[in-house]
Write a protein that binds this DNA or RNA. Structure first.
Lengths: 235, 235
DNA sequence: CTTTTCACTTGACACTGTCAAGACGATTGC
DNA sequence: GCAATCGTCTTGACAGTGTCAAGTGAAAAG
């Protein structure tokens, strides 16, 4: 494909100067944020970048590859943000449940901060992970980050869950669902921005309360495992 | 638009005989399920229904209206299913938390049973609720159903939540996120169907355990409300 | 200075949603 | 009974889309 480094000498190639590749990506994101996914088309992106309709094909084999790159970047940013929340000094003082809730909230905040990325990331009809190995790799890394954070949190004081795999899925689902509803669901439409943020905080707080109550109840009656003790991990 | 009733006498109109409208809807759903959202086009739908590309416009003003109808039907089916789960005799014997978990599971089961409907329902770029009053009405009804079920459940024995509105959003988010991940997310790809179902049951069970632990902890230490007592409902 | 390579451009094709107009049997008013 | 109307589609066209194939002109390499 296309070399992205500089030439043998320190000079920049023409492509690096015009920086069309990055401009195309930026134009795509802006287009989605301004006009919505429906209006996203390679030709409009090219138009916005000030080139002809075929220019994007020099950098991306097809439309899916371009979106795949955004998807990949999105997962990278998401992972970053979750790790930041998990390791945050401010959150370090919290209980295990509090830290988990903070990570969940960071997930939703990511969706709000990068709506175009988020809208593409979980849409297999736009970006099939089988066709975009980069996106798949970053997606897996994000998943493993969630898994690791949950695992550490469980070790640090959440012994009540019947299966850690289920708790991972539960945390991801809750965060993901809340992000979806906040971004494109009924919550986005009617409420003003501040009310939505308050709602997210309330949900986070509720979840945290539930987890903490679970911890407390186990401390009173230890060994209360619900059913079977995690038969198999779902990687 | 088009009258859908029968004629003044009991006879059927031509349209009712050919039943093209229903065939178009069915063809759309089949197309999504077989080929994915990307391949969905009015022309292909018309082709599948055995008519020319313009025939759908006799029944639907545009593509969005057709999808909006599917969306509306989806919300109706979802509401039905949740109410069934909430009122199920088998679930009636459960605790409040158990009933709530059963409703959540019914949400995910709906998504698996009607994947084409579900994929359309939460995609504003396909169906903008402002353009489809029917879809909006059924969507609101579904939301209110969730709210009512949560409310009843809280009254029946979940006093620990800091805000009922937050619990409603939490329940919806968890179910919705899980449905998304199961249908189109990382969970769908690698695991076989039975493992996915087991995972859903595990998550449901975990949530139920968390809620029940919360109930228990409150029963030991009543009046333990986290922060402020529900400032405003988000309708 | 010539040749190659890069970074695009031009042109075409099949496909899409949608507008305008037409066709044609069934129903209806008289 | 028969012309007029109506309902239910069809035909044709247009602008927009993603993508293939080929061309172009300036920079880089020799």
């Amino acid at each position: 494909m296309i070399k992205t480094g500089s030439t043998s000498r320190g000079r920049k190639t023409r492509a690096e100067v015009s920086d069309l590749r990055a401009r195309l990506l930026r134009a795509s994101i802006e287009l989605i944020e301004e006009e919505g996914l429906q209006k996203l088309s390679l030709r409009e992106v090219a138009r916005r970048a000030g080139v002809t309709h075929q220019a994007p094909y020099h950098y991306f084999p097809d439309r899916e590859a371009l979106l795949g790159e955004i998807c990949e970047e999105g997962f990278r940013l998401l992972t970053e943000r979750m790790e930041l929340a998990a390791g945050d000094q401010h959150n370090a003082k919290l209980s295990a449940a509090g830290r988990l809730a903070a990570v969940g909230q960071s997930y939703v905040e990511f969706a709000c901060a990068y709506p175009a990325h988020f809208r593409i990331m979980f849409r297999p009809e736009l970006v099939d992970h089988d066709h975009c190995p980069g996106a798949k790799a970053e997606g897996d890394r994000a998943f493993q980050t969630v898994a690791r954070i949950v695992h550490e949190t469980v070790k640090a004081g959440l012994p009540a869950v019947p299966s850690e795999a289920a708790l991972i899925t539960l945390c991801w689902s809750l965060s993901h669902g809340l992000a979806c509803l906040v971004l494109d669901g009924p919550l986005a439409k009617k409420l003003p921005q501040t009310a939505v943020e308050q709602q997210v905080r309330d949900v986070t707080k509720t979840m945290r309360a539930l987890l903490e109550a679970s911890v407390a109840s186990v401390q009173k009656a230890p060994k209360r495992v619900l059913k079977k003790p995690t038969p198999k991990r779902a990687t």
